[in-house]
Simulated assay, not measured.
Amino acid sequence: MKKVVIEDSLGIASELEKQMQYLIDTYQCEWATVVNDPERRKWFKQFINSDDNELGIEIITQRDQNRPADWRKNPLELPIVESIEIPDEMSWVTVGKTWDFPVDAGAVVKYGDVQLAVFQSAEGDHWYACQNMCPHKRSFVLSRGILGDENGIAKIACPLHKKTFSLETGESMQQEDYSITVFDVRVVGDDVQLNLPREGKLEPTLATAPNCSAVCR
C-alpha cells in the first residue's frame, strides 16, 4: 500500500491527480444551480398557473407545538367523494402551455381554491385531468402518482397507498368505494385547456380547507 500510494509504484498518481482536479474544477451544487436558474426553478412550482403555495398538510397542535396530523384510522368517518355533479354550465379554461407539463407525469393547476392534476401521456400524446385530492386519505397528491395503463384504460395510482383510479371514468380500478372526478382536456395551439364549471362550483367538495378536520396550512 505504501509503495502504491506514496511511492507511486504503479505510475498512476499523476493521472489520479488530474482526475481529482477535474472534479474540483467542475463541481457545482445542484441545488444552488436550480435556485439561481429561473427556468429550472419553474420545475419546483407547486402550481403551473399560480405562484401560490398551498401545502395541503393538516396541522394539529400537541404540547404547544404544531405537527402533521396522524392518518385517520377510519377514513370513512368523513364523507367520501364518490362523484360530483358537474353543472351544465361548462367552459374551456386555459391552465397552461403544453411545455409546462411533463411527459408521462403529472402537474398541478389551481382553479379558484381547487387543485387539479393534469397528465400528459407520451403514448399517443393523450391528456387527462382529475382532482388532485386522493379520496382515500384526502391528501392532495395524485399529480405525483404513477401514470399507467390497464387493459387499455389510462390510470393513476396514488403515491401514498397505491389506490388506483381510471383517468377516463374516475372509478376505482380496485373496485373500492372511492372515485375521483375527471375532466376533459384539449390542446388548442400551445394552450392546454380543461372543460370546467364556473369557478367556485367545485370548492365545497374539492378545495383544500373543507377536507381537513383541523387546519390545512
Rank of each mutant, 00 (worst) to 15 (best):
K2G: 09
I6N: 12
D8L: 15
S9G: 05
G11L: 13
G11K: 14
I12E: 15
I12T: 15
A13T: 11
A13P: 10
S14D: 14
E15K: 15
Q19T: 11
Y27T: 12
Q28V: 15
Q28K: 15
E30V: 12
V34T: 10
V35G: 07
F44G: 03
F47Y: 08
I48M: 03
I48L: 04
G56T: 04
G56I: 11
I57E: 05
E58S: 01
E58W: 02
I59M: 02
I60T: 03
Q62K: 13
Q62F: 13
R63Q: 15
R63N: 09
N66S: 09
W71R: 14
P75V: 06
L76P: 08
L76Y: 14
E77W: 08
P79H: 02
I80N: 07
V81E: 05
V81T: 15
V81I: 15
E82R: 13
E85A: 06
D88S: 12
E89T: 11
E89G: 01
M90E: 13
S91K: 13
K97A: 14
T98I: 12
D100H: 02
F101G: 07
P102C: 01
V103G: 00
A107K: 07
V108T: 12
V108F: 05
Y111L: 04
V114Y: 02
L116E: 01
F119C: 01
F119N: 04
Q120N: 11
E123K: 14
Y128D: 00
A129N: 03
Q131T: 08
Q131H: 02
N132V: 00
M133R: 07
C134A: 04
P135E: 04
P135K: 06
K137V: 10
S139Y: 10
F140R: 06
F140I: 02
F140G: 01
L142G: 00
R144H: 15
L147R: 00
G148D: 05
D149K: 15
D149T: 11
G152D: 05
I153H: 07
A157N: 13
A157K: 14
H161W: 08
H161E: 11
T164D: 03
T164E: 11
S166F: 08
S166T: 06
L167I: 04
L167Y: 09
L167T: 00
T169D: 03
G170D: 05
E171T: 10
E171N: 11
S172E: 00
S172M: 01
M173L: 09
M173D: 09
Q174V: 07
Q175M: 12
Q175F: 14
E176Y: 01
E176Q: 09
D177S: 15
Y178E: 03
I180H: 02
V182Y: 03
V185Q: 04
V188T: 11
V188S: 10
N195G: 08
L196E: 01
P197G: 00
R198P: 00
R198W: 08
G200K: 06
G200V: 04
G200N: 02
L202E: 04
L202W: 00
P204M: 06
T205R: 08
L206D: 06
A207W: 02
T208V: 13
T208W: 11
N211T: 02
V215E: 08
C216G: 05
R217Y: 08
